[in-house]
């Protein structure tokens, strides 16, 4: 029996198309997971047996064909820590200025343009800038300090942009409420804006760390060493680093057993994944606690 609500031929054709496109886009999306699965799978399979406790706690030995990655691991921690100490205060301060104080004029627009362009500079160009500025001009030599500062300059735009977005996410009406009671900009920022954006700021910082861990180009001319038989004792020392170590044992050293570079690569990816997960979990947790 046909009623005015019955299916027509046109409806049937539209529904077939609907299913077709949903399937098509779904499949395309699914293929995006593939590279991740293949990379991690390959690393796990090929590095089998290398990830032992000794691997993380011993020095590389025998021309880096045996032993562990301890100095590279420690070196990466140094590099990331010093880069953070340099970039976070600068980046957060700049973001606060741009979000809370700056008026919308040509100077602000110029600064924003500079930040976007800074984010677009290739890392190898940052590396050369680092050599010129920190290694030579400031005379830090090839050192942790020079390498970390180079990475700090490189990640500064990320910190500024993510911090500024977190600050902008605090409703304008809260600021108006403060100002209308005679609060200064700084009182408003300190009492209301920062406490309500700190979660977003920290998330951005953790993401920055995970990015810094993997960088190779900016540190290879500025402070990371091919091989060092001792740990750095100050920021003016050179150091080994995970990312450069991976590059070196994969391409520069003969007779490295196959599992070793895979083990280093897997460690590197694990560090990044753990950091990203922490960042995501943190964000989810704090979003749940949001008060407006």
């Amino acid at each position: 029996m046909s009623s005015s609500f019955s299916t027509t031929d046109l409806n049937v054709r539209n529904q077939r198309n609907e299913r077709l496109f949903k399937l098509l886009f779904g499949l395309i999306t699914a293929t995006l997971i593939l590279p991740v699965v293949i990379i991690i799978g390959t690393l796990i399979v090929k590095s089998e047996g290398t990830l032992t406790w000794a691997f993380f706690t011993e020095d590389p030995t025998n021309g880096m064909t045996e032993g562990g990655i301890f100095p590279a691991l420690v070196g990466t921690l140094w590099l990331v820590a010093v880069a953070l100490i340099a970039s976070v205060p600068l980046g957060v301060a700049a973001a606060i200025y741009l979000s809370e104080y700056a008026k919308d004029n040509w100077l602000t627009r110029l600064i924003n343009l500079a930040i976007i362009n800074l984010a677009g500079v290739p890392s190898i160009v940052h590396a050369l800038f680092g050599v010129g500025a920190f290694v030579l001009f400031f005379n830090f030599g090839t050192s942790i300090l020079a390498a970390s500062l180079t990475m700090a300059v490189m990640t500064l735009p990320v910190v500024i942009v993510s911090t500024r977005e977190s600050l902008q996410a605090v409703p304008q009406s809260f600021r108006e409420a403060c100002w209308s009671m005679g609060a200064t900009r700084w009182q408003t920022i300190w009492r209301i804006v920062l406490p309500n954006s700190i979660s977003g700021i920290l998330t951005g910082v953790i993401l920055e760390v995970s990015r810094t861990v993997g960088e190779t180009a900016p540190i290879m001319f500025t402070g990371a060493a091919f091989f060092l038989p001792f740990l750095p004792s100050s920021v003016f020392d050179q150091t080994m680093a995970m990312s450069l170590h991976l590059y070196v044992i994969s391409t520069q050293v003969p007779h490295v057993p196959e599992g070793l570079p895979y083990g280093v690569a897997l460690t590197l990816i694990l560090i990044v994944m753990v950091l990203n997960s922490v960042s995501i979990a943190f964000r989810t947790y704090l979003r749940g606690k949001k008060k407006w």
Binding site: P171, S173, F174, E176, A177, C178, S180, M181, R191, I192, N196, K291, W292
Partner: peptide, 13 residues
């Protein structure tokens, strides 16, 4: 000079 806004803007404290 106190001000009350259109949308209540109690602070998140």
């Amino acid at each position: 000079v106190g001000m009350v806004f259109q949308r209540p803007n109690a602070l998140p404290i």
